[in-house]
Design a protein around this nucleic acid. Structure first.
Lengths: 226, 226
DNA sequence: CCTCAGTCAGAAAAAATTTATAAATAACAA
DNA sequence: TTGTTATTTATAAATTTTTTCTGACTGAGG
């Protein structure tokens, strides 16, 4: 779980880094708005702690941009700032921040808010199994079954199916699948996805079961919800 | 959008009701924990404003129960309470509340927090589907339906319809359509647009439905608003 | 060995574009 | 109005292109 701290005061960065690392998070930091934007693109953190008053591009502006960008729309953002005025708080939240913490803040409360925001973003976390239609994936035992039939999946097929089942009903592009299943800086061909889709289908539909994976031509694939 | 207010002081309920209704929410209320639980089951609100100190079953306990219940795991909860101590705030958030507001609070800030929490819960709200007349386009699942009938569109028809539905009631020239749907440096004949319009019409009006695409002679086509 | 990931290449399927022709509409003159 | 003509759009069929499917092959690693 990586958290990007966007803050220009080194002392504050260190305070946050210390607390976050104690909670087991990876921490990256950026001292100003421009670097923040680059860091978000490059490191794809799981959450951003964003100071309002930072050089170059303001926190508010960054937040607005993230919310407009399809790719980062759901990236959790907590705004941190010295401005405690109510109107500022309202503005911070309305611009799309997930939460708002005023300086000076208590580290324990900030950590609680971080946990709360992350818990929301990942409502599946904590769940030990996924169930879509008649397909069940046991994330603890790493076993998958369709109906009463146990399925044997290779590691990649497993991750692929999991990625699908965490996003049922969504059409996912090959690029999204490669990023999510293979990892972001892995170079493999687009066609590789096709092949694994085929293998997954083969196992999933061994009996005459209906195909739950829908091909959306020129876009990608979708695991059907119902 | 229905919000359940769980609060035992009538004056506070009225204050909240007034503010919420001004923002266009439906409001239900429950004076204690037991009634709250029933109200959640029966009315299935979209969000709960939960006072910590209420009779019978405490707010904390209700929150805990909701978080354990598969059915209500994702129901947004904002805790409201007189207790402003940091340890209480941490506890409120860690028990699974989506946000925490201490009394006395400013109505404007509470409303901003409500909007923020609802926005999160509904990441689909931000233009993930288009609806014009009885035609619905789901941009996440890539599914199009007219009335209750599902339609099958090829990639180009899909993009074309999307382009139209994003600009209902506007007459679009073939050139505009080619730029918008095909891309700006693609050379294809004008007639190609006609062909795709025809295919789109065919699918859209398979039943005896009225044609929503109006031909504007010597200009182009228009997707009718109503 | 055995399993599995990745690549490739040809087959198959689906969809896009062009072409040719028919139909519709507008413009205009009688 | 009524024909006539020119222009524009509709439609089906043919062709081409794009995209996906599929089986087979290779090599890595247990």
């Amino acid at each position: 779980m990586k958290i990007l701290v966007v803050e220009d005061e080194p002392a504050m960065v260190e305070l946050l880094r210390y607390n976050l690392e104690s909670e087991g998070f990876d921490v990256a930091s950026a001292p100003d708005g421009e670097e923040a934007i680059m860091a978000i693109e490059e490191q794809s953190p799981d959450m951003v702690l964003l100071d309002w008053m930072i050089p170059k591009v303001s926190g508010i502006e960054i937040c607005r941009r993230l919310r407009r960008d399809q790719k980062f729309r759901n990236l959790p953002v907590i705004m941190i700032t010295a401005r405690g005025e109510e109107s500022d708080r309202v503005r911070g939240l309305d611009v799309g921040a997930d939460d708002y913490v005023a300086k000076p803040f208590s580290p324990a409360e900030l950590m609680a808010r971080i946990r709360a925001v992350l818990r929301r973003g990942n409502p599946n976390a904590g769940g030990e199994s996924l169930q879509i239609a008649d397909v069940n994936m046991d994330l603890v035992a790493y076993k998958v079954s369709r109906g009463s039939r146990e399925l044997h999946l290779g590691p990649t097929e497993f991750k692929l199916l999991r990625f699908f089942m965490e996003r049922p009903g969504r059409v996912l592009t090959r690029e999204q699948l490669l990023d999510g299943v293979w990892g972001q800086n892995v170079y493999v061909e687009d066609r590789t996805v096709d092949v694994h889709i085929r293998r997954l289908r083969k196992v999933l539909n061994e009996n005459g079961d209906v195909d739950l994976i829908r091909t959306v031509r020129a876009v990608g694939y979708c695991f059907e919800k119902a």
